[in-house]
Simulated scan of single mutants.
Amino acid sequence: MVSETFVLGGVPVRRLGYGTAQLTGPGYWGPRGTRADAVAVLRRAVERGVTLVDTADNYGPGLAEELVAEALRPYREDLVIATKGGVVRTSDSAWHVEGRPERLRAMCEASLRRLRTDRIDLYQLHRFDPGVPMAEQLGALDELRAQGKIRYVGLDSVTAGQLSEALALTSSVVSVQNRFHLLDRGSAAVLELCEAHGLGFLPWFPLGNGALTGRAAASVDTVAAAHGATRAQIALAWLLHRSPVLLPTPGTGSLAHLEENLDAAALRLDAAELSLLDSLAD
């Protein structure tokens, strides 16, 4: 039985969410389409039952958060808005990790303004800054939580060792966001830790970012044909079957693609199909 919901921190969310990265242009820089189209996609996602919307301050930069506010305020009580801070963008190809406590506080304040809210449900540290002690970075987020500006803390792109260290330093962490999809299980050890500690795991690039080719594509097509589904839907359904803590948030700027993605939640894969898909990892 595949669970449709997960308790993130203390809040139930639908496991299949929506990510906003594809509302911005190449390199997550500038707009991809019109504001009206982006707003329509965000609103339709929530109409379809999405309760977890994942964004970041550097998507745009700033644009994705502004679109979330324009489309979804006033925020429904059951809607969890997750954003990220800790990375500064200076061009479409430049990413600068920034974990000094004063900068993390400033980035969180800026996200609060763009999202037009008094509290961010899930504030994710986009990267650990190797030049700043982990305790100082997490301490800054704990201070923001004590001030009521964030509800829960998430971590992005961490190793199993970093996650274990973070959990020893704070009890605020409720989720991880790492690369994980049908063909990339490199974060399996992190996923196991999330399962052991009851943490949510938001897999980024849940559709593999175009990786479904060759033998893998043929195998996925075999399963897809049995369900009248697409490759993308099978990739998402596999994640939902793989672990009850996986919370995929596929992104798109297309209403049609959004509908396709969300329909994946209804697919039920049998043991033979799961075995075939499990065998595809690199």
Rank of each mutant, 00 (worst) to 15 (best):
M1T: 09
M1R: 11
V7G: 10
G10C: 09
V13I: 12
R14W: 04
G19D: 09
T20S: 04
L23M: 12
L23R: 00
T24D: 11
T24W: 08
P26E: 11
P26G: 09
Y28H: 14
Y28A: 08
Y28C: 03
W29H: 15
A38M: 14
L42M: 07
V46W: 15
E47V: 08
T51K: 12
L52V: 07
V53R: 10
E66K: 14
L67V: 02
V68T: 11
A71F: 10
R73K: 07
R73A: 14
E77Y: 09
E77P: 08
D78V: 08
L79T: 11
V80Q: 03
I81K: 08
A82G: 04
A82N: 05
G86Y: 09
R89W: 07
T90K: 10
D92F: 15
D92E: 14
D92A: 14
A94P: 01
W95T: 10
E98Y: 05
G99Q: 09
P101A: 00
E102T: 12
E102Q: 13
L104A: 04
C108Y: 09
A110C: 06
L112V: 12
R113L: 13
L115F: 11
R116V: 09
D118W: 04
L122C: 07
Q124P: 10
H126Y: 11
D129N: 02
P130C: 11
P130F: 12
M134S: 13
A135W: 07
E136I: 05
E136Y: 05
L138C: 03
G139N: 13
A140D: 01
A140V: 07
E143H: 01
Q147M: 14
L155E: 02
D156G: 10
V158Y: 06
V158W: 03
G161Y: 13
G161K: 13
Q162R: 08
L163E: 05
S164G: 12
E165V: 05
S171G: 14
S171R: 13
V173I: 10
V174N: 10
S175Y: 02
S175Q: 07
H181G: 02
L182E: 00
L183E: 01
L183F: 01
G186Y: 08
A189T: 15
V190M: 04
E192K: 15
L193C: 06
E195T: 02
F201C: 14
P203L: 03
N209Q: 13
N209F: 12
L212K: 00
T213D: 00
T213G: 00
T213C: 02
A217T: 00
A218P: 08
V220P: 02
D221F: 03
G228L: 07
A232H: 00
A232Y: 04
Q233M: 02
L236I: 00
R242F: 11
P244E: 12
V245R: 01
L246R: 06
A256E: 15
L258G: 14
L258E: 01
L258Q: 00
E259P: 05
N261E: 08
L262W: 03
A266V: 03
A266D: 14
A266E: 15
R268E: 13
R268N: 07
L269N: 01
A272N: 05
L274P: 06
S275Q: 15
L276N: 07
L277S: 06
L277G: 02
D278A: 12
L280Y: 05
